[in-house]
């Protein structure tokens, strides 16, 4: 039996293989223990890498992030009125407009408000660096003192109780009508519920643990460290193409209105398909 190359397996793991090619790879993996083992090694290396790199993350400081007033400048989008005497001129924010640093405090707060209200997707993740940065930055802007969080003491002789699971979710609006959902770390026997929804936003929600992490791209949602909690995947019905992959196993592929399932289906209706992880 010819084995798959590491490049092929890595591409499969990263959601780069679609359609018939993906089904072919999945079928090969079903029958080849060697390739499955290699896939497991690559997956483990990827998770190890994500965990390690997360230690490097630091929140951007308030002043540096806001200083240019970029978000405020873009949010402004208004014409300036500058008069004939030199202090008023009709112009617009365009490619050739010289960039001007706006009045600092007002725009700083406006920019922070814009960032907080509309909220980058990553900021929705509990405990994410972006969320901590936004909250800390807003507090610094509006409060007299920065918030100091003290970690509770943990007795050395007692194992700390596992953190209670809380529902965490991440959503994106796929840009080109295509979406790949990658779920890693699901436990055997765990259920994954895929729901077709009539809205433009795709969502992955799960009972998060300390190890749960989300990452996104324009057409991709990845959740790692899922543990044993429930997982819901909300897929817009309007997507031209979508697939859900759990630990390298293709569960579902949606092409237009057609939905193909490959994983263990334990429940299925018009809008909901429930898979059980082997």
């Amino acid at each position: 039996m010819n084995h798959l190359s590491e490049g092929q397996l890595q591409a499969y793991l990263d959601g780069e293989v679609e359609g018939a090619a993906a089904r072919s790879l999945a079928a090969h993996l079903e029958a080849c223990a060697v390739c499955t083992a290699t896939l497991d090694e690559l997956r483990a290396a990827a998770v190890r890498t994500s965990h390690a790199l997360a230690w490097l993350d630091r929140p951007a400081s308030t002043a540096a992030a806001i200083q240019p007033g970029i978000a405020a400048l873009a949010a402004e989008r208004a014409t300036e009125v500058v008069g004939a005497n030199g202090d008023a001129r009709v112009t617009s924010i365009d490619a050739h407009r010289p960039w001007r640093r706006p009045a600092r405090v007002g725009f700083l707060k406006a920019a922070m408000l814009a960032l907080l209200v509309t909220g980058a997707a990553a900021a929705a993740i509990p405990g994410s660096p972006v969320q901590r940065w936004l909250i800390g930055a807003w507090t610094q802007m509006t409060g007299p003192e920065p918030v100091v969080v003290e970690e509770p003491e943990v007795p050395e002789t007692v194992e700390p109780a596992p953190a209670p699971a809380e529902l965490a979710s991440i959503s994106i609006e796929p840009i080109d009508g295509r979406l790949t959902v990658l779920l890693d770390g699901a436990a055997p026997g765990q259920s994954i519920r895929v729901v077709l929804v009539d809205e433009p936003t795709a969502t992955v929600e799960t009972d998060a643990t300390a190890a749960t992490r989300f990452s996104t791209g324009p057409s991709r949602i990845q959740a790692t460290g899922l543990g044993r909690g429930s997982v819901n995947v909300l897929l817009p019905r309007s997507l031209a193409y979508a697939r859900v992959v759990a630990d390298g196993q293709l569960l579902l592929e949606k092409e237009g209105s057609a939905v193909h399932t490959q994983g263990d289906v334990v429940e299925q209706s018009d809008n909901v398909i429930v898979f059980r992880i082997r």
Partner: peptide, 17 residues
């Protein structure tokens, strides 16, 4: 070549870690 390069880089980094 991206898949192959990433696979190798992941392995190297995981080993280094």
């Amino acid at each position: 070549s991206v898949g192959t390069l990433i696979a190798r880089a992941l392995r190297r980094f995981a080993e280094a870690v």
